[in-house]
């Protein structure tokens, strides 16, 4: 349902097990081989996903959009690539389309001309000056999403967790500072690069994010290489809270690992490599 994650289409139609996700991805790769043969340089891997994430942020900033719209757009993008190959479509137009649709879904509609012209400012070489192309892509995007467009995010879940922690009993009482909440927020924004939103409920992602923040402090991305060995009292309180809750700890641990993997990969992320590869690929598509 639209207010409740547990009865939502997100849980019932767009959540996968790891195995299901692997199967879906290998079907897409089979499709690619059928279409273009084996010589593939560009892959839908974590580097590509960081690049796509940056594209969404770039257009979102130009349009002055709220973060939740961008997160919804990125969920659409991730769902789309469960079934479609990056080599079948123009990813710059796809990113634009996801944002266009997410604006409407999050009740902040932007005129199609505004979106198109900002997208052309960002990527003039790849966005044709033809709004029917964007409108056409919207149709196919919605069809691929099977018209399920309501998305549940962890942003509200984290506030609930923080409230419970503040009002908890002695062993699990914990005051989360506004700075820490801000860090959680930005880790959650990054989490859309990963498969987490296809795998786990929003409260799991929120919980994993909070754990990472408590352990690593404000500058998560810098400190992942020297994780402190000693547990402080606050982390103990959080662990007590987790133990007493019904939250699935295995899923929280998987979430934390996925995020650490992401930040690790980010350290060796090479934007120019992806950019040039994509440009070459799109030029070839036009031959």
């Amino acid at each position: 349902m639209s207010a409740n994650y547990w009865t939502s289409s997100q849980r019932n139609k767009w959540q996968f097990s790891r195995q299901e996700l692997r199967d879906a991805r290998s079907s897409v790769i089979k499709l690619e081989v059928q279409l273009y043969g084996n010589e593939s340089t560009m892959k839908y891997d974590i580097n590509m996903r960081i690049y796509l994430h940056q594209l969404i942020i770039k257009l979102g900033r130009k349009l002055n959009l709220r973060q939740i719209i961008l997160s919804t757009a990125e969920v659409y993008l991730t769902r789309f690539f469960v079934k479609v190959s990056i080599r079948e479509i123009n990813i710059y137009l796809l990113v634009t389309t996801c944002i266009y649709l997410a604006c409407k879904m999050e009740e902040s509609p932007q005129h199609i001309r505004t979106i198109l012209s900002e997208a052309r400012n960002c990527w003039p070489e790849f966005i044709p000056n033809d709004l029917t192309k964007l409108a056409e892509f919207e149709f196919y995007l919605i069809e691929e999403l099977d018209c399920y467009m309501v998305v549940h995010h962890p942003y509200n879940s984290i506030l609930e967790v923080v409230n419970v922690l503040r009002d908890g009993d002695m062993a699990s009482r914990l005051e989360v500072s506004p700075e820490e909440l801000q860090t959680c927020w930005s880790i959650m924004n990054d989490s859309y690069i990963t498969d987490l939103h296809l795998l786990f409920p929003p409260h799991i992602i929120a919980t994993g994010t909070l754990y990472l923040t408590l352990v690593l402090g404000a500058d998560v991305r810098k400190s992942i290489n020297n994780i402190p060995k000693t547990q402080n009292q606050r982390i103990e309180a959080f662990v007590n809270f987790l133990a007493a809750s019904n939250i699935d700890l295995d899923e929280v641990i998987e979430t934390i690992q996925e995020l650490l993997t992401l930040y690790d990969a980010w350290n060796s992320y090479d934007e120019m490599y992806i950019k040039n590869g994509l440009h070459q690929m799109l030029l070839n598509m036009n031959k």
Binding site: E88, R120, E125, F126, D130
Partner: peptide
Amino acid sequence: VASTDFFTIGPYRRRR
């Protein structure tokens, strides 16, 4: 600058 017939979703559209 991309011309109006620049590649958008051709192969995907055919498949769908």
